[in-house]
Amino acid sequence: MLPDAVEHHHPALAHQFDSLEQQKEAATLGMWIFLVTEVLFFGGLFLTYTTYRHLYPDAFAAASHELIVWAGTINTAVLITSSLTMALAVHAAQTGNRRLLVLFLIVTMILGTVFLGIKAFEYYSEWEERHVPGLNYAFDPRYYRHAQIFFSLYFLMTGLHALHMIIGLGIMAVMLRWSIRGTITPEYFTPIEISGLYWHFVDIVWIFLFPLLYLIGRHAHV
């Protein structure tokens, strides 16, 4: 049985693994370990946010009120929809439906691009409103200094999130290429699965960023 196994293994099976199933488990575990480091990376930023919001709640509420809430809401919906199409892409890969796999990957990439477009529009309006610390910052004198901390964190956190989205789009472009070429099969769809894990993680970061950045000043400063 052993020589036969060596001769006839699946082309995608690396020699250090006994089976594709074991290879998939190892890859999934590796991706999750990487995501743990990402959780702690963004966790440090959320911690910084929490500490300063605790110190300057009024300035944070006033600054948060300046963000475009409809843009943030639409972007949340766009990202959640992209997570759905990503999950459906994995499903299509598992069931061997290449046409649907390619379609869902393209839709996921379009939604990711729409998200970045809306984000770019927001950055542009914030530049126009003079909310960019260090470049053209102006704000209500009562909150001038502490709102600057909010906006610094806002640009840092959403900027790093956007960077993750751009990297995600690059990964999806490779996945699209592999899917069209036929590298992805029902026996070997691990790349789609773990790329999906990354995409969903970036969605989760936004699920926390949205209420914490956009919604804290809504009732107080109308």
Binding site: M1, D4, A5, V6, H8, H9, H10, L13, D18, S19, L20, E21, K24, L84, A87, L88, H91, Q94, T95, P186, E187, F189
Partner: peptide, 18 residues
């Protein structure tokens, strides 16, 4: 006989759940 290749089919979540 495809010992190195055919893994157990992965758990396919019904799309309805998604």
């Amino acid at each position: 006989a495809n010992p190195g290749g055919a893994a157990h089919p992965a758990h396919v979540v019904p799309t309805r759940i998604y």
